[in-house]
């Protein structure tokens, strides 16, 4: 019961305080809750996007839906997801239809996702469309994948076109712990370039292992490493 009075008192207090800044219009009251859920963890380009604005009508701008292309593109979304979009142009499809007869049906258009390093590791998705896109879950981070768009009725797979290769990012610490160190010094690079004795590209920085640094003693590498 007491909490009821506390709540009532807060409401009265709120109304009282609002009177000092004239009365806000009632239909705008909901606006004041706009930001309570702001997520600062997000990249904050949205900071300057006003929550209320003049309504912009949906765009009626003419852009091509497709480009009469033959392509399959893969993009990386995160360590476990890829995104594919593709287009098989009608001319190519006509040729394919003539070549493969009954197999060349829309419902047989299949996207095969392959691991680059293991030709036995793949899976198929029946995409059933000449033009489309798909978000695809993949098994492994830090793994190169590519895609093949082809025809399949569950048995034979006829490849039609291949995508670019992508590598999923890591989502954990690298297992490789051995270290390589590099000195990047403008002065040193100039000398190396002038002498011209190095067997690799003269603009490449001089590379050496950490042990070498410790030996020459010029660098702050003497203490025990953590």
């Amino acid at each position: 019961m007491s909490s009821y009075f506390v709540a009532l008192a807060l409401v009265v207090l709120a109304l009282f305080s609002l009177r000092f800044v004239n009365s806000p219009e009632k239909d705008l009251a909901s606006e004041n809750t706009r930001g309570s859920q702001q997520d600062f963890n997000l990249e904050a380009a949205e900071e300057l996007v006003p929550a209320k604005s003049r309504p912009v009508p949906p765009a009626v701008i003419d852009i091509p839906e497709y480009y009469h292309d033959l392509r399959l593109s893969l993009l990386v979304r995160d360590p476990k997801w890829l995104f594919a979009y593709w287009e098989i142009n009608p001319d190519f499809w006509r040729d394919i239809s003539q070549q493969h007869g009954r197999l060349a049906r829309y419902e047989n258009i299949t996207l095969r996702i392959m691991e680059l390093a293991n030709e036995m590791a793949y899976f198929d998705i029946r995409v059933g469309n000449l033009i489309g896109s798909w978000h695809i879950q993949v098994p492994r981070p830090d793994t190169p994948y590519y895609g093949i768009l082809g025809l399949s009725n569950g048995g034979e797979f006829i490849p039609l076109l291949m995508s670019n290769t992508v590598i999923t990012p890591r989502n954990d610490l690298s297992a490789l712990g051995d270290e390589e160190w590099m000195l990047v010094s403008e002065y040193e690079q100039k000398i190396i370039k002038r002498i011209g004795l190095i067997p690799f590209d003269a603009t490449s920085p001089f590379m050496f292992r950490k042990d070498d640094i410790s030996k020459d003693g010029d660098h702050d590498q003497k203490k025990q490493k953590p």
């Binding site: 997520d39 963890n41 997000l42 990249e43 990386v76 979304r77 995160d78 360590p79 590598i167 990012p169 890591r170 690298s174 270290e179 390589e180 160190w181 590099m182 000195l183 990047v184 590379m207 950490k210 640094i213 660098h219 590498q221």
Partner: peptide
């Protein structure tokens, strides 16, 4: 003098990629 290592593909957006 710094360690040579390949940064992981990433972003500072929600979920990190």
């Amino acid at each position: 003098v710094n360690q040579v290592s390949l940064p992981n593909p990433s972003s500072w957006g929600h979920k990190g990629y």
